[in-house]
Each structure stands twice: as C-alpha cells, then as structure tokens.
C-alpha cells in the first residue's frame, strides 16, 4: 500500500513541479510578438523563395512590421499580396509588376554543336568546370537542369532537346533559376506577351558563333537596320531589343538571317504547348 502511495507521490510530484516550472517560465520568459507578423505571414505565399531579400517568409513579415522592408517586395505574391499587406499595415502601396523568367538560348542539341559527350555529374555548374562544358558555345545552355531543381514552384521542366521550358502560368519571377544558372542565361522580364526578343546569350564574334550554333546571334546588324523604331542595339557582340521601344512589328524577326529573334507570343505558345 505504502509503495503505491510513494509511486503516486513521486511521479505526481515530479509532474506538478515541472508543470509549475513550465507555467512560470512561459509567464516570465514570454516574448511579446506583434500579432501583425502572424497575419502577414499567412498572407504571404509561404514558398520561402528569398526573392524579397530575406531568408524566408517569416523574416520578411517581421521586417515589414518593423518598417524595414517595403510592402511590395514579395514577387511571387504579386500585387494582390502587396495590397493585403498594405491593408494590414494601414498604408498604401504601389502595384507590383508581375515578372517571369525567360531562357535566352534556343541552341538545343540539334542546333548547337557539342564538342564531346559528357557523362559526368548531372549538374550544370559541375559540367561547366569540366573543360567549360560539352557545348561548343561557351554561353549556351548546358541543359543539365540546375534551374529546374532550383525552382520552388515547379515552373521549369527540361524539354526533349535539352533546353529548359518555363511554364508561364506557374512562374512568378522570383529569380532563383537566374541565380542557379552558372552561365546566367535566364533573365527575369515583365510578364507580357508583347515584344520581340533576341534569344541568344553569346558575346562571341560572329564567326565563332556560327561555327558553334546555327541559331546564335552573330551581331550582323541586319536587325538594327530593319527596326523602324530604333529599338535594337548591339551590345558586346549581341543584339539587344529595348522592350519599351519595341512595338511588335516583327520586321527584325523577318530580317534575322539566323532565326534568333522570336516574338514573345510564340515563345509563350510553344512553352504552353510543350508543357501542357
């Protein structure tokens, strides 16, 4: 009988002692946190992509409440998210431009020559270290999918010919793929289907480009002359179209002897057809 009482007393006593200690601790060591942090964190998409410049959604929410971060820094959340945060904080906010990733290379395995057959690690950065990658073009896409693995929204997939495809419905322009690409082929542009783009990343001279790839920009200047609005300039051996000046007339795409210039509409359609 005594034994049973001891057992109850010891276990019950220990339980009570720790219970009281925990209660006291939670009272005396409580941390006052702003309820707005929790509200904002629930508004945010919760992907922890880091596009806002903070380590994750919680950190960004804290920074917003402390007034250190702008209200519209969440790119995946877009305008709607910024408006909701502004409502919580009682401030007004500018619209957020919605962005999307664009792959500036169309030199797939059939169009761009390869110097050797690569059997190494399936990682673009590792392949780059091995003699600068298999592709003859030192600026072209290596096609081993670092961007695919980096995307937290599963918006990028690897196409059949070794070029990544961006699913524009899922992509929100967080820019993690741009960071993951060792050759910086991916650019983040405003999400629209207007305008034309030079889908090449090569800064080599024309002769080297045409040897390495049948669809590379050789900086021949034909598009510069063809453009009626003077929206195209050659920068460092590569034609660049100023999207603000471009009115989508399509003269450059018709004139380009290499077929490097494509309307964004077609890029979007192709990606939709192949992804879908």
């Amino acid at each position: 009988m005594n034994n049973m009482l001891y057992a109850v007393a010891v276990l019950g006593g220990t339980g009570i002692v720790f219970g009281v200690l925990l209660a006291l601790a939670s009272k005396y060591f409580a941390i006052e946190s702003d309820p707005r942090v929790e509200t904002i964190r629930e508004i945010l998409p919760g992907a922890n992509c880091g596009a806002c410049g903070y380590a994750g959604c919680s950190n960004y929410a804290e920074a917003v409440v402390e007034g250190k971060a702008p209200l519209n820094a969440c790119i995946p959340g877009g305008s709607q998210c910024a408006r909701e945060i502004a409502a919580v904080m009682g401030q007004s906010v500018e619209e957020v431009a919605s962005l999307a990733a664009v792959v500036f290379c169309i030199g797939d395995r059939e169009k761009a020559a390869e110097r050797f057959i690569y059997h190494g690690i399936e990682d673009c950065a590792e392949a780059e270290k091995y003699c600068g990658g298999a592709k003859a073009c030192p600026y072209g896409c290596l096609g081993l999918g670092n961007c695919v693995r980096a995307c937290p929204f599963e918006a990028i997939s690897m196409g059949a010919h070794g070029l990544p495809l961006v699913d524009l419905d899922k992509c929100n322009g967080c820019g993690l793929c741009r960071e993951a690409c060792p050759r910086k082929i991916i650019q983040i542009l405003p999400k629209s289907e207007a305008g034309h783009l030079v889908l090449c990343n090569s800064h080599d001279r024309g002769k080297s480009v045409s040897r390495a790839c049948t669809v590379g920009c050789t900086a021949c200047r034909i598009c510069v002359k063809a453009c009626p609005r003077e929206a195209i300039a050659i920068e460092n051996n590569l034609a660049v179209i100023d999207l603000e000046k471009c009115d989508d007339c399509g003269e450059c795409a018709k004139a380009c002897p290499q077929g490097t210039i494509h309307p964004r509409r077609r890029v979007a359609e192709q990606s939709r057809a192949r992804v879908g």
Binding site: T14, G15, L21
Partner: peptide, 26 residues
C-alpha cells in the same frame, strides 16, 4: 530510496520532455 525502479522509464520521459520544453522557453 523509495524502491520505485519500475517507474524509471515513465519518470525519465516526463523529466526529459518537460526539461527540453523549459530550456526552449528560457
């Protein structure tokens, strides 16, 4: 001292769980 060795697993789990919780709060 109280001859309660059969309680050791239960008692240890109780103590460890609450201790970790306590340390975390502090």
């Amino acid at each position: 001292p109280f001859n309660l060795l059969y309680l050791q697993i239960v008692a240890f789990i109780l103590v460890i769980a609450s201790l970790v919780q306590l340390v975390e709060t502090v």
